[in-house]
Amino acid sequence: MEYVLIIISAIFVNNIVLSQFLGICPFLGVSKKVGTAVGMSAAVTFVMALATCVTYLLQYYVLVPLGIEFLQTVSFILVIAGLVQMVEIILKKISPSLYQALGIFLPLITTNCAVLGVALMVVQKQFGFGGEAAHFFNLGQSVVFATASAIGFGLAITLFSGIREQLELSDVPKPFRGVPIALITAGIMAMAFMGFSGIV
């Protein structure tokens, strides 16, 4: 039951883009076409789940025992950068077709703050769902949370790209063109997502 609550909360209630403001750069940058948006979210989901798993283990089996938690930010970002590179190389060898589809998005993910954000969130924040006391996530919950957050990112960016494709065809006043109208659209979407607040 708790997993269901984590998933619903991460996708809808605390949507990573529309209510936590993480991953805004790709959200604005690669949302012009639905196709690229879907590709990006698939790549993010994969990397985010993997990265959170690895950084979780790093935190509790290396940094905490050695008492060097102050290296958290440095080591996490290095792990993520390395991981992205590795995924890129492996994907190229094992599945060229998948690489073709996701490859161009992978380098962009290192600087996607959603990945680092989620990795830090699961080790820094305590969560509580369904009325139980707040606690730190265990490994399984962390990975589920990361995957669900990434799906939330995917949902937001895919819906958003659909709207932006329509916007391309409409006559927008000149100063509004490009990013400003996209931001205002995102604001209205965020308002719609606020309707989910309180269901978990």
Partner: peptide
């Protein structure tokens, strides 16, 4: 309230950017 919450952030930034462009 909406301006302190998430939607307000997007909308305020959007409109300020419009003014900047103009």
């Amino acid at each position: 309230l909406a301006f302190v919450l998430a939607p307000g952030a997007f909308i305020v930034l959007g409109y300020l950017m419009v003014l900047f462009n103009k």
